[in-house]
Design a binder for these strands. Sequence first.
DNA 1: GATCACCTTTCGGCTGAACGGAACGGTATA
DNA 2: TATACCGTTCCGTTCAGCCGAAAGGTGATC
Lengths: 253, 253
Amino acid sequence: MTRSVDRAVRILLALASGTPRLGVSEIAELVDIPKPTVYTMLRTLERHALVAQETEGGKYALGPAVMQLGNAYLGGSELRARSTSWAERLARQADEAVWVAVLSGADVVVVHHAFRPDDLVQILEVGAAIPWHACALGHAIVSWLDDHEREALLGKPLRRLTGRTVTDPDTLREQLAATRERAYAVEDQEATLGDAGIAAPVSDWSGRVVGALGIVGPTERLLAADRRASLTDAVRSTARALSRELGGLTSRR
Amino acid sequence: MTRSVDRAVRILLALASGTPRLGVSEIAELVDIPKPTVYTMLRTLERHALVAQETEGGKYALGPAVMQLGNAYLGGSELRARSTSWAERLARQADEAVWVAVLSGADVVVVHHAFRPDDLVQILEVGAAIPWHACALGHAIVSWLDDHEREALLGKPLRRLTGRTVTDPDTLREQLAATRERAYAVEDQEATLGDAGIAAPVSDWSGRVVGALGIVGPTERLLAADRRASLTDAVRSTARALSRELGGLTSRR
DNA sequence: GATCACCTTTCGGCTGAACGGAACGGTATA
DNA sequence: TATACCGTTCCGTTCAGCCGAAAGGTGATC
């Protein structure tokens, strides 16, 4: 492990979480690194536009280059590339928005978003990060991780996002077991009030879970008794089809 | 300057440019750092999900965390926040797609994209990076930089993207002078064949240019003799209005 | 199936580059 | 005017990063 690199990353993450603009001293305290060290690193990061300083002698913020990295990540994502057509198809079929996501630490990050066909106001959610335990996508992924990884995630503190967020490890363990059995996950207003999700895991040729695919929308539409069965089936079979495609063309190793 | 941090960033950028998946040796050669050093750094970056290793012992790629950073950047961008309503308005008025961009090294990075109102196929271009010299947005920004910064950019090698890309520094210098005078830039198929752009610089309260705003679309529509005057006026006045807004509410320093 | 070539990964001792305490100058605040 | 806190600079010390050498895998070649 390279300490300086680790520290620099922690600085970037500090800038990414919550307050977008921070001073040297604030960062130093936040990540517990001496001020001069933080300063030197910020300057180094600034060279590459990963951070930017507002006015001379002012606070620091993330720089535009991090966006280029993000874009490059999307461009290189096998999952995203292969999922677009399937997601589109499912969005039309279910008449709901479809998200494809991967796990990043304890968060689920949306890598593709197919809009609900007839929606007018569409907010692109690509790049959004949601705590894994508060969404169906997260449950779908984590339920398929091996015991060791899953327990590591259950061990971390679990934030409550709405009144309905489940944060008890034991309850989650049960839910994950159920998810594993059914091969799909359901979430009802645990991340956002009014919104629900249905998701299924996506795996690659080796059987390892690489992400999840699911639909997101208003509770009353998604979880209506008469639609639920058909929606879960649609999600599950789409995820399976996508997994098969990822498995087939073993792709560039 | 922290050497390790600089090196780590160069590794990330290498992963971001071109081939999305690289082996340790490939990276080592690309960025000219001894293999074991690259390895250690990759492992450090992997901890934070900034890079990810496909299969165990395989090649490395950017990780999902870089997307979170990108998203955080967008969320904290004053320019983006203030530009949305203006961009929307201009998109309706001009009936064309509107882009807002900032400079990142020698590239222009799109931070906001307002769709052309009646377009059906809409590709979200947020995060896209375009060499500054090949687009109106880039010209608008660079023309307003101070001499020193501008010359530094003109000194770097300028890539040709289409047959019409201007890559001669002297020609560019003239174009930039003209842009500075008119307070808007025009580009015709220099980045993409068939597409043109009209853009104007956006500055903050201190007068420093912070980005640019412009319309993008098919050459025949954008540069039609009868529309051009009204379009350039619309772009210019929108950019000015946005600048004024950024100037007014000095915002959180 | 043995050899080869190339990979990623591990190890450890040397050394110079990163670190951080202390001080500086500028700028809001009382 | 005094104070407090900021970003920034300085520079000697030291310990962490560096990287040559070697190990352990893996897939191709003959």
